[in-house]
């Protein structure tokens, strides 16, 4: 199983929230946390393979032409499909949440006092999900090899029977 990435990116043009979230995640998880004020900056650093990206929905408060959260989400999923994206938004509109999930977001967190706790929970949920996913792949591979082994054994027995060698074996009648 590939090593789970212990790197988190935060993308938010609100410097106070980004700093508070960064401090909280550093304290509550053992992940390496980096923040960016724009989606464009985040995309330039995807070669660092972040395991989790916390991405603000609106990113145009500083630069009016900046990519919005949905555009950045789609680019992240194209360039780094293994990265799980958790959307952050100041609005709790269900349609916004549905749209982000449609484009592959893992979770959607409404900004507020509980957002920090929810972000911490999201990190643990993603970690647990990745581990389960890894275990499932391992068991699938084990089952496949077991099936191949049994099939090979059956074929060997059949070949021994066909060639008459099996009746010569001690204890076989």
């Amino acid at each position: 199983m590939a090593e789970l990435s212990k790197k988190i990116f935060i993308v938010d043009d609100d410097p106070v929230l980004a700093e508070m979230l960064r401090d909280h995640l550093v304290k509550m998880t053992n992940y390496d946390v980096t923040s960016f004020s724009s989606g464009e900056e985040c995309l330039k650093h995807l070669d660092q393979f972040p395991g989790i990206v916390f991405l603000d929905f609106y990113l145009d408060s500083v630069n009016k032409d900046a990519m919005d959260g949905l555009q950045v989400l789609q680019e992240i999923k194209k360039a780094s499909p293994e990265s799980d994206v958790v959307m952050l938004s100041g609005q709790d509109k269900i349609q916004v949440a549905v749209d982000t999930m449609k484009y592959g977001a893992f979770d959607y967190i409404v900004k507020g006092e509980s957002a920090f706790y929810r972000a911490e929970k999201a990190v643990f949920n993603i970690y647990r999900y990745k581990k389960l996913q890894g275990n499932a792949t391992r068991y699938k591979n084990m089952s496949l090899w077991l099936a191949i082994g049994v099939a090979a054994l059956i074929m060997l027995v059949m070949w021994l029977q066909l060639t008459g060698k099996i009746s010569d074996m001690p204890g076989w009648s």
Partner: peptide
């Protein structure tokens, strides 16, 4: 709308 939105979340904290 965007500027008010940004200020709003900071005022909350």
């Amino acid at each position: 709308k965007t500027a008010a939105h940004t200020l709003k979340s900071q005022l909350k904290y």
